[in-house]
Design a protein around this nucleic acid. Structure first.
Length: 480
RNA sequence: GGCUCGUUGGUCAAGCGGCUAAGACAUCAGCCUCUCACGCUGAAAACAUGGGUUCGAUUCCCGUACGAGUCACCA
């Protein structure tokens, strides 16, 4: 059975690249009806951020990435929070020491810093690699702080196979004797994730490609324990475009890059998921780019994952979001809008009708307030606006005639809905010898004060009501 | 700097030795229309580079350039 996991550190917000890793990891297991595990990697006690785990959980819940095992869900391989598994790691580390694959290191931080100063990229000099048994015992008994390091082979080559990148080989001489257990008794990521992945039965390790070159060290750990290596699936990085045109790893300076930022900015979770699914992965022979999570489960395969980094394109996300919003049914749209509309809406406004007009004309919910403004207050505008080449309106006297006739007609219209209004106004066209477009243009400008509006003249009047419509026409007349 | 990986239009990308090199976003033009949006139609726009291999390379190999990642008691 395919078992994957998402193993974030609770160090802050849910980065969009992280979410994509979670998505792919989820999809890989679910494509095979496998299991998806959530594991919290909180071994760095200094970087812990309170509430971060809740953000992770709620993001997975909102996006629909349900996990079969994890904290608060349980499972046969718990606990699923690394800090609660602390004793396990030391036990395995000692096994490694006994087997000669790891060793105690008593070097002080100061000494390591000095090493660093001499050669910034040199790494550890393996000073404690060959301490005598007696010396180790002595230090241990004296309570000298220690770490446990992995004993790397000094020569040879380590090779592993990655499902996306293929065969990766590293000279063992490149590998540092990395720290497995820290002085505070907690394991490092390098050690903990290997132990946990093995113990939890993870078959596919899915993570960002920043781990591509450290994986040989992990593979060596599996080998040392005599465990079967998992499948590795390294994902291409997500990049952001910088102001100067260059790209770099997607980060805060590229804008809203946490899931919560995007939600707050008016994006729909479905649209976000759909878009990031396509960033670094492409379906085999598919004509559509639209996928629900269930559809993704069905079509997602590792061989569609790309090797090259992908630039996060807010424009395209915005387009996706617009498409998702337009497809919402009216009730849903109204509900979701309510969360974003900050403007007080006066009684004369037909809220439902207004939202209907806006729905197909926004790409994200935060555009709502600005776009609805003119319904509520007539903007200041210049009579210049009435001129219109296409409708051959080059004379304000014509506008005046139209508005006066419209006013008269509108006074006697009782049901101010789009169809009635349109029916009532149509005859003016013949009466005044003008095209419908010309009539409506004049009215729309008068009633909106804007060159471009969501909806036409009659729709706008339906939204703002009879009294306000007539008042706005009067105001226009006064300008002419 | 060493090591590892990558490189198809502005962006996401298909392609897996022979094609007029798909498609989507963005851009531009036209149509539709009560303005806008939607929709429809069309346009412009790409195989980083030099060598091989081959009858034939975007596709395979090597070099170069460029980019990214990594070299922590962070993950």
């Amino acid at each position: 059975m395919t078992v994957t996991r998402f193993a974030p550190s609770p160090t802050g917000y849910m980065h969009i690249g992280n979410l994509r890793t979670a998505l792919y990891s989820y999809l890989i297991s679910k494509h095979d009806d496998g299991k998806f595990i959530l594991r919290i990697e909180d071994t760095d006690r200094e970087r812990l951020v309170e509430g971060a785990t809740d953000i992770i959980k709620s993001t997975l819940a909102i996006t629909g990435l349900g996990y079969d095992e994890g904290p608060d869900v349980g499972g046969d391989h718990g606990p699923y929070v690394q800090s609660e598994r602390k004793p396990i790691y030391m036990e395995y580390a000692k096994k490694l020491v006994d087997a000669g694959h790891a060793y105690y290191c008593f070097c002080t931080k100061e000494r390591l810093e000095e090493l660093h100063n001499e050669d910034a990229l040199g790494g550890y000099d393996r000073h404690c690699r060959n301490l005598s048994k007696e010396e180790i015992e002595k230090n241990l008994n004296a309570g000298v702080p220690y770490v446990i390091r992995q004993k790397m082979p000094l020569d040879g080559v380590t090779t592993y196979y990655d499902s996306v990148f293929g065969e990766i080989s590293m000279n063992n001489s490149e590998l540092q004797d990395q720290i497995l257990m820290k002085a505070d008794g907690y394991p490092t990521y390098n050690f903990a994730h290997v132990i946990d992945d093995y113990l939890m039965g993870v078959t596919h390790v899915v993570r960002g490609s920043e781990y591509l070159t450290s994986t040989p060290k992990y593979v060596l750990l599996y080998d040392a324990f005599g465990w079967e290596r998992p499948n590795y699936v390294h994902l291409p990085l997500l990049m952001g475009k910088n102001a100067d045109g260059t790209v770099s790893k997607l980060s805060k300076r590229h804008g809203a890059v946490s899931f919560q930022d995007l939600i707050d900015d008016g994006y729909l979770p479905e649209a976000i998921v759909n878009y990031i699914a396509l960033l670094g992965w492409c379906p085999k022979n598919s004509e559509s780019e639209f996928f629900t999570l269930d559809e993704l489960k069905a079509v997602f395969t590792i061989d569609g994952v790309s090797k090259s980094p992908a630039v996060f394109d807010f424009e395209k996300l915005l387009w996706f979001n617009g498409e998702y919003i337009h497809k919402l049914d009216d009730e849903e749209f109204k509900m979701l809008s309510a969360r974003f509309i900050k403007t007080e809406i006066p009684a004369n406004i037909n809220r439902n009708k207004m939202l209907e007009l806006l729905k197909t004309r926004i790409s994200k919910f935060t555009e709502l307030d600005e776009k609805m403004e003119f319904f509520i207050t007539l903007p200041e505008y210049d009579t210049e606006l009435f001129y219109n080449k296409k409708n051959k309106i080059a004379d304000l006297e014509v506008v005046k005639t139209v508005l006066e006739a419209a006013k008269e007609t509108l006074c006697s219209v009782n049901s101010f809905d789009n169809d009635s209004l349109f029916a009532a106004l149509m005859p003016l066209s013949e009466k005044l010898g003008l095209k419908t477009g010309a009539i409506m243009w004049c009215i729309r400008i008068a009633v909106s004060g804007m060159a471009a509006t969501p909806g036409g003249a009659t729709e706008i009047m339906e939204v703002i009501g009879k009294e306000e419509s007539l008042a706005r026409i009067d105001k226009a007349l006064a300008k002419l």
